[in-house]
Amino acid sequence: MTSLKKMIGASTFAVMAATGAAQADKLTFYCSAQEDWCQLMANSFQDATGIDVAMTRKSSGETFAQIKAESANPKGDVWWGGTGDPHLQAAEEGLTAEYISPMRDQLHPWAISQAESAGNKTIGIYSGALGYGFNTDLLAANGLPEPTSWADLTKPEYKGHVQMANPNSSGTAYTTLATMMQLFGEDEGFKFMKKLHSNVNQYTKSGSAPIKAAGRGENTIGIVFMHDAVKQAVSGFPVKVVAPAEGTGYEIGSMSIIDGARNMEEAKKFYDWALSAEAQNLALEVNAFQVPSNKGAKTSQSAPDMSSIKLIDYDFKTYGSSDTRKRLLKKWDDEVSVLPQ
């Protein structure tokens, strides 16, 4: 009886081993960039390695919420794209795994410092500077001068013409808030936000909504990441992009491996591949105007020229931490959002 059971056990094991070998490697890929970019990354990685990729695209906030909800039994392997804050948050909460890629020496310093500030649980894959864009037709129709700086946006003539997202709901708007703190200091920064508040016609929920509204002629000036504004202009909408004269903050789009990933080896393969110049060059094919983190990767001609933009030394560690975030958001809620417009 025992030998029979052993035989059965052995044969099942053999069958299992055989099917295991026959089964193709696979990777569950959570993507928070734009749809066509995600699609291209998934297909290209599949072509390059033969690993089956199952890709799901959701915004970075949605993906974060999902990874958190799934943390007891993780379903995803790697999370690529989307603004850095949720990746940092995930690292802080231990939802993502530490990994040091051999590709690191090919990256820009800002990408590596992003990794170091999160205990190597995330890494920068692209960056984009904050700025704003305006609808040239509407500006002309209202007889307004072209704004060139942050301070311009607080001038009374732009009343009801500026739109930004609500920092409570959008990472882009939180970056704006944090940028003002670092650019002007906390007191002056909040003074700026208050003055800006009286010109704002709507705090949108989603980060890129202000510039989309501007593209459709529903709004004049939208405070967004400059690559989002460029995308509107390239799509054919009458939008002009502005790099504010005082200097500006930026985001670092990030990538993390999910803690407890079922396909850890494949996730690491993807991680290394996504940091390579050839993978990052794929952005050019899908009109993504961010600046890639690999020094050897090409940047689109239409992308905002980072060398001509005055970038502040953005402190991701401080402003990405949940304590600072909660404090600033509460202050903004209590002191800015309640003011009459």
Binding site: G61, A65, S169, S170, Y174, K205
Partner: peptide, 26 residues
């Protein structure tokens, strides 16, 4: 409400952004 809400906030969108927004406040 997401598309047309303007500054008229309602519960359903607030719930969505409490979960997926910058606050992460379940």
């Amino acid at each position: 409400p997401l598309v047309l809400g303007g500054n008229y906030d309602v519960l359903s969108t607030e719930i969505f952004f409490a979960i997926v927004g910058a606050q992460y406040d379940q």
